[in-house]
Nucleic acid binder design. Structure first.
Lengths: 108, 108
DNA sequence: CTTCTGCCTAGACAGTTATCTAAACAACAG
DNA sequence: CTGTTGTTTAGATAACTGTCTAGGCAGAAG
C-alpha cells in the first residue's frame, strides 16, 4: 500500500484537476463526453443539453481542458471534445488509495 | 458498463465533493488524515504541518466535513478527524468509470 | 467577396472563497 | 474560581468564479 502524504507540489497539481470537477455543469459536461460512444462530442450537442449560453459552455470546456481532463480539435466547422483517460485515472486512484488506506486503518 | 450521463441532481452532489477537494491545502489535509495509521488525526498535528493559522485550518476542515469527506469527534481537549471511505470511493468510481468508458470508446 | 453559422474571446457584474485578526467556547490544571 | 491551551466562530478584505452580452474569428455556401 502506497499512501504517503502528498507533497505540496503534487497536491497543487491534483487539486487543479479536482477544482475543475467541482462544478455541476462541468461534471455533467465531462459525463456527457465520456458517455458518448465514439468518444467524441461536438460542442453544439453539449450546448443543447443545457439552458446556458454558448459562451458559458465554452468557458467551462476551457476550464476542463486547462485542467488536462479533456482535449479538443476543430474539424471543419465543428469542434470536437474528448476525454483524457489517464488524467481521470490519476485522480480516481488518489481517492481510491486514500479510501482503502482509511478503511484498513493503516498505511506504511 | 454503466456510464449514463449524470442527472442534474447527481452532478450537484458529486460536484460538492470534488469542489472540496479542489484546494491544495484541503487535499493535503485529507492525505495526511488518510495516511495516518489508526485512521484518526488530532487537529494540532494537522495545524503543525502548514504555515497557515489555526482558524484557516479549521475552516478547511469544516469544508471537508460539510462535503461528507471527513468526520470528527471531540475527546477531552483534542478533536480528532477521520476519513469517510464510502464518500471517497463514490467519487473515485465516477472518474474510474468515465475513464474506462472513454478508453474503450463506448458505453451502453 | 459576402453572408451565414459555429465557436471563442473580451469585458462587466454579482456572488463566493481563502486568508487573516480578534474574540469566544471547551476542557483541564492549579 | 482563575488561568492556560486547543479549537472554533465572527467579521473583514482581497482575490477568484460563473454567468451574461457584445463582438470577433473560422470555415462553408452562395
Amino acid at each position: 500500500m502506497v499512501t504517503e502524504a502528498l507533497t505540496e507540489d503534487a497536491a497543487a497539481g491534483l487539486a487543479r484537476g479536482f477544482k475543475a470537477l467541482g462544478d455541476p455543469v462541468r461534471l455533467r459536461l465531462l459525463s456527457l463526453i465520456a458517455a458518448r460512444a465514439g468518444g467524441e462530442v461536438c460542442v453544439c450537442e453539449l450546448t443543447d443539453a443545457f439552458t446556458l449560453t454558448g459562451p458559458t459552455i465554452s468557458h467551462h470546456l476551457k476550464v476542463l481542458r486547462e485542467a488536462g481532463l479533456i482535449d479538443c480539435q476543430r474539424r471543419g466547422t465543428w469542434v470536437y471534445y474528448w476525454i483524457v483517460p489517464a488524467r481521470l485515472a490519476a485522480l480516481s486512484q488518489l481517492l481510491d488509495v486514500s479510501a482503502a488506506a482509511a478503511s484498513t486503518g493503516s498505511t506504511r
